[in-house]
Design a protein around this nucleic acid. Structure first.
Length: 223
DNA sequence: ACCCAGGGTCATA
DNA sequence: TATGACCATGGG
């Protein structure tokens, strides 16, 4: 099991927050819109998701009962800007049908986090990261979201290897930080922000994200 | 022209 | 268990 010192993790959060400030995640409003956004943003830039969400809102389709019965063609046309529109149309419909079968938000809110997570993962098109986005940002459960930025930033800081299985990392970070919804919310948003800023897949300069890049912005964990 | 983005599924070994 | 192909738009 991956062990990460909570002390160092909190230090990273502090420095990221000093650099970037409050991220105010999740952007947009309403629990259901967050869930739709979580599916649409799979491997997709958020700006394109906003266009898709705007289309859905304009056609009064940003509601589970509308999406659940929407013809895949039309749904695909509405969400086209977010890419992978054919697969995502099916995924959205799968999710909305499950969502309504379960009795909607009120019924889902009464469930335990573990039960909810298991249910979300049973939907074809909802993987671990999307499920955890929904759990943390829509249901405000203390679940740490692991994504490519988390792996990249923390591995370049030497705190993890980076190729650990999803749940191993998630449980490791949850254990290190303790159940803390506002902290998990802000930390994940800051990791994404930092990744977009300087921690690129292919570093532009020498050890950009570790020795130089992160050093410049006070993120170096050595010294 | 190239890289990349707030992943997941499915077939294959 | 672990790779690889595939899905597709749009910004820098």
């Amino acid at each position: 099991m991956t062990r990460v010192p909570g002390r160092r993790l909190r230090s990273v959060v502090q420095r990221l927050h000093r650099r970037y400030g409050d991220q105010h995640w999740w952007p947009g409003d309403g629990g259901f819109e967050i869930m739709v956004g979580a599916v649409l943003t799979q491997n997709t830039a958020w700006v394109n998701v906003e266009r898709a969400l705007a289309n859905l809102r304009r056609e009064a389709h940003l509601a589970p009962e509308r999406i659940a019965v929407c013809h895949p063609r039309r749904l695909a046309r509405l969400i086209k800007p977010s890419g992978y529109f054919n697969v995502k149309a099916k995924r959205l419909r799968n999710f909305c049908r499950w969502y309504m079968e379960q009795g909607g938000t009120a019924a889902l809110r009464r469930r335990s986090t573990e039960d909810l997570r298991h249910g979300l993962l049973s939907v074809n098109g909802i993987g671990p990261e999307t499920a955890d986005d929904i759990l943390l940002y829509a249901f405000e459960r203390p679940v740490f979201v692991i994504d490519a930025y988390t792996r990249r930033v923390l591995s370049r800081l030497g705190m993890i290897r980076g190729d650990e299985p999803y749940d191993e990392l998630r449980l490791g970070l949850e254990h290190a930080l303790g159940p803390d919804v506002p902290l998990f919310n802000e930390f994940h948003a800051l990791l994404v922000r930092h990744g977009k800023d300087v921690c690129r897949p292919k570093p532009r300069c020498d050890a950009c994200c570790l020795r130089r890049g992160c050093g410049r912005i006070g993120l170096r964990t050595e010294d």
